[in-house]
Design a protein around this nucleic acid. Sequence first.
DNA 1: ACGAATTTGTACGTATGTATG
DNA 2: CCATACATACGTACAAATTCG
Lengths: 231, 231
Amino acid sequence: MPVYQKIAKELEDDLRHKYQAGDYLPSESQLAKYFQVNRHTVRRAIDELVTAGLILRHQGKGNMVLRQPADYYLHAGAHFTGNLLEQGSLPRCEVLQSRTLVASERLARKLDCEPESKIIHLRTYRKMDGVPRTVIDHYLSDYSWWPVIKHFQSGSLHNFIKKELGVELERKSTRLRAQIPNTEYCRLLQINSSIPLLIIRTTNVIKGTEKVAEYSSSNTRSDVIELVMEH
Amino acid sequence: MPVYQKIAKELEDDLRHKYQAGDYLPSESQLAKYFQVNRHTVRRAIDELVTAGLILRHQGKGNMVLRQPADYYLHAGAHFTGNLLEQGSLPRCEVLQSRTLVASERLARKLDCEPESKIIHLRTYRKMDGVPRTVIDHYLSDYSWWPVIKHFQSGSLHNFIKKELGVELERKSTRLRAQIPNTEYCRLLQINSSIPLLIIRTTNVIKGTEKVAEYSSSNTRSDVIELVMEH
DNA sequence: ACGAATTTGTACGTATGTATG
DNA sequence: CCATACATACGTACAAATTCG
């Protein structure tokens, strides 16, 4: 067995006993010194763990422990279970970035507004076990909401809008697909492209009207989720 | 953009125009010379394509082209769109096999019956453009239906059951996930393992009761489908 | 059957870029 | 601005698998 695989095994073992989710590994240089190998070899070993979803790389910061491999083996049976109908307004999400932008052709179509018009973009994420598992892009068609929306920090976006703007949103349609993640989502969710994403796209209207207020796209690692609908 | 990503892009472009599935790329050394970079850099670029499911490495032999990314670009526009709620009783499906079997632990749990009891298994498929896109496994808990069910050939299973057995089925729950296909489904759906499956599992009860009559698992190539719910 | 040439796989070393605190 | 840590890239060497004479 190659050296890097041995080190990967040993590290995986350490994850189980020495570290907890959220901890940072010793730096690659330190590990290289400890294992008496080149730093590349340690990196290769850590690559294995990243691919397995156990480690998250942070440039300039360090390699974070995502979860303990004990969880790992539960996988087959122990998926996080989400409700398909709750999806649009995740109760516990945090803002990754918020900004305004000019609507592309495609977004304008989704939001039923003019191309080139200014809209709001929020990117939020949801953690499980302290780690981002879902990244959601929200696009809001009403630019006048920006002074309020820009203060949204965490919690439920829909509740925030209801409370601060007095507007209640209602889901109009849901589209669902699975796809190999692009490089951006690979980075955000720390997976490689062997793990598909489950993508849920919803259109939300202002309650009781046909006016499209929000288009959102939620992207979840498919290895940790199973969506449920009870009829 | 890093050099290795540029090279990956260029190679991906070459896959579309210069190579066919089954071809071998020039050796890494040759590519390194051509791109005027170190062999490591080429390797890193090829790693990207391997991860994307486009290339297969063969030690001592070379790097084989698996498929052309041309398939990819059909995606966006050419999706089959299915309705999530129609799922249980596909109007046009054909029987691949039908048999009886003894319920495993897992199936018994799903069907709410005793392990080791005899149940019915139907495997059906649905074609689009002449190619199987969806394979559905139906498990029926009531073995006494077998003399009737075994004559089901094509059409809608639920309609058949209603007509021939006078029993109406009703969906109780739906679970949805995405997963890399196993070898059996790769064969059935004629894909390789880089295309995820969209899996919908439903539990159906006899209308108006809590009696579970059917558990079904539908497996669709995720590159040709988008599920829709209108609310 | 064997060895040489080719090709990918692993490992070491070094240097520089980029993000974080 | 600086130190630290990860990211990328160059170079070299040898091991392991495959092919072919």
